[in-house]
Simulated scan of single mutants.
Amino acid sequence: MRIIFIISFCLSFLSAQDYLDALIQDVLHGSRDSAAIYLPTMEQRYPNNPSLMYLKGLLETNGEEAKTIFAKLYNTHPTSDYGDDAVMKVAEYYYAAGLYVQAANWLKKMPIYYSRSEHIERAVKLFLNSLIVSGHKDTAIFYSRVFKRQFPALDVDGKIKDLLKDFEKADQEKEKAKKFAPIITEPEIPIVEYENKIPAVQFNSDNSNGIYSLQTGAYSVSENAESQKINLIIAGFSARINELYKSNRTLYVVRIGHFNNKEEARKVGVQIKSKLDLDTIVITNN
């Protein structure tokens, strides 16, 4: 009864959001007692509050359960104040568990959806390292170039060089150790699978009925087209892939937007050239 009175007294002076934020800060600074006491009552009052979900995840001592809570927070409230924090918590759980492919799939959400997050520098470094240690060095180098353009204030070149150097050193030590150890079979590393459900960032001028689009490339290998599409999406352009059949083979073409006239399309083409140094052509949609 006394606990309920204290909670009601506190909430009468602070808004629920301010109070939740204060409890979250307490937990982040190592003080968990107050939050643990107040959590059950506040859950009854605000069961779907994203801040409360984040607080609950912080208090959860079971890593798997905490990861599930943070993932639910991201999936249900991606634009909340703690959306980026939740993504990082899930990614860090997988990274710490050595599940680098899963970690990369979560970390890549940060530059796409939370490019202004306070965690972006750490996210970029963990993402690149996750790709490197999971055997996708070329993909990491590709993304380092993308991030260099997207985040000019970050020392991306320095980060990727250090990560590659550390990886090569560890790889050399592993090879050296093999000479003095029994035969060791390396675990098969799964291929990074990029989600096809990334929502495209739409231009104000983008119109599905527009008769013109921009084309940045045509590839015989779908993975190459997918890489360029992701590159464009990260930079803020609504890219898509269309399949064309020509001379008894399939081409995967990367296109951007739907425009009512060629001038609108050319203006966006100038932006793409400026941001990504990609040449574009204006095509007529069939």
Score class of each variant (00 low, 15 high):
residue 89 K to P: 01
residue 11 L to N: 05
residue 82 Y to M: 10
residue 81 D to F: 13
residue 67 K to P: 07
residue 172 Q to Y: 13
residue 248 N to M: 12
residue 280 T to L: 06
residue 143 Y to V: 02
residue 73 L to N: 10
residue 137 K to Q: 11
residue 285 N to H: 04
residue 275 K to R: 10
residue 149 R to F: 01
residue 10 C to V: 14
residue 103 A to Q: 02
residue 236 G to E: 03
residue 104 A to Y: 03
residue 177 A to G: 07
residue 130 S to E: 01
residue 133 V to C: 02
residue 174 K to V: 07
residue 217 G to C: 04
residue 98 G to Y: 01
residue 11 L to D: 00
residue 142 F to D: 05
residue 284 T to A: 09
residue 77 H to W: 12
residue 285 N to F: 04
residue 192 V to T: 11
residue 225 A to T: 00
residue 181 A to K: 14
residue 153 A to K: 12
residue 241 I to H: 01
residue 168 E to N: 11
residue 162 D to S: 13
residue 143 Y to K: 04
residue 170 A to E: 09
residue 111 P to T: 04
residue 247 S to A: 15
residue 222 S to A: 13
residue 8 S to L: 15
residue 215 Q to W: 00
residue 70 F to R: 07
residue 50 P to N: 03
residue 56 K to E: 13
residue 28 L to G: 14
residue 34 S to L: 14
residue 1 M to D: 15
residue 241 I to T: 01
residue 281 I to Q: 04
residue 236 G to Y: 02
residue 102 Q to T: 07
residue 237 F to M: 09
residue 118 E to N: 11
residue 15 S to P: 00
residue 135 G to K: 03
residue 253 V to A: 15
residue 123 A to E: 01
residue 214 L to A: 02
residue 166 D to C: 06
residue 223 E to R: 03
residue 239 A to N: 07
residue 118 E to M: 10
residue 266 R to C: 06
residue 217 G to K: 02
residue 139 T to Y: 10
residue 90 V to S: 02
residue 195 E to A: 15
residue 37 I to S: 09
residue 146 V to T: 03
residue 267 K to P: 00
residue 101 V to W: 08
residue 210 G to Q: 02
residue 22 A to N: 06
residue 69 I to F: 11
residue 153 A to D: 10
residue 111 P to M: 06
residue 261 N to M: 10
residue 163 L to T: 05
residue 162 D to F: 06
residue 114 Y to P: 06
residue 179 K to S: 13
residue 198 I to Y: 15
residue 65 E to M: 12
residue 280 T to S: 00
residue 84 D to Q: 08
residue 274 S to H: 11
residue 55 L to S: 07
residue 245 Y to S: 14
residue 151 F to V: 03
residue 18 D to W: 08
residue 59 L to G: 03
residue 277 D to E: 14
residue 21 D to W: 10
residue 161 K to P: 00
residue 79 T to V: 14
residue 79 T to M: 15
residue 195 E to V: 15
residue 41 T to P: 11
residue 59 L to C: 09
residue 71 A to P: 09
residue 57 G to F: 08
residue 32 R to W: 10
residue 194 Y to S: 13
residue 71 A to T: 12
residue 45 R to K: 15
residue 158 G to P: 00
residue 206 D to Q: 11
residue 15 S to A: 04
residue 203 F to C: 05
residue 96 A to Y: 09
residue 207 N to E: 06
residue 163 L to Y: 04
residue 82 Y to R: 08
residue 107 L to F: 03
residue 165 K to D: 10
residue 206 D to H: 10
residue 37 I to D: 13
residue 239 A to Y: 00
residue 92 E to K: 14
residue 164 L to N: 08
residue 236 G to A: 06
residue 5 F to N: 15
residue 168 E to H: 08
residue 272 I to Q: 00
residue 123 A to G: 04
residue 229 K to Y: 00
residue 157 D to M: 02
residue 214 L to E: 04
residue 119 H to F: 07
residue 193 E to Q: 15
residue 261 N to E: 02
residue 22 A to R: 12
residue 108 K to R: 12
residue 148 K to F: 05
residue 93 Y to W: 14
residue 164 L to A: 04
residue 84 D to E: 09
residue 162 D to P: 06
residue 145 R to I: 03
residue 105 N to P: 08
residue 256 I to Q: 06
residue 278 L to Q: 08
residue 17 Q to E: 04
residue 57 G to L: 11
residue 160 I to V: 03
residue 243 E to K: 13
residue 194 Y to N: 13
residue 138 D to K: 06
residue 154 L to I: 01
residue 160 I to H: 07
residue 64 E to G: 13
residue 108 K to N: 03
residue 249 R to H: 11
residue 217 G to Y: 04
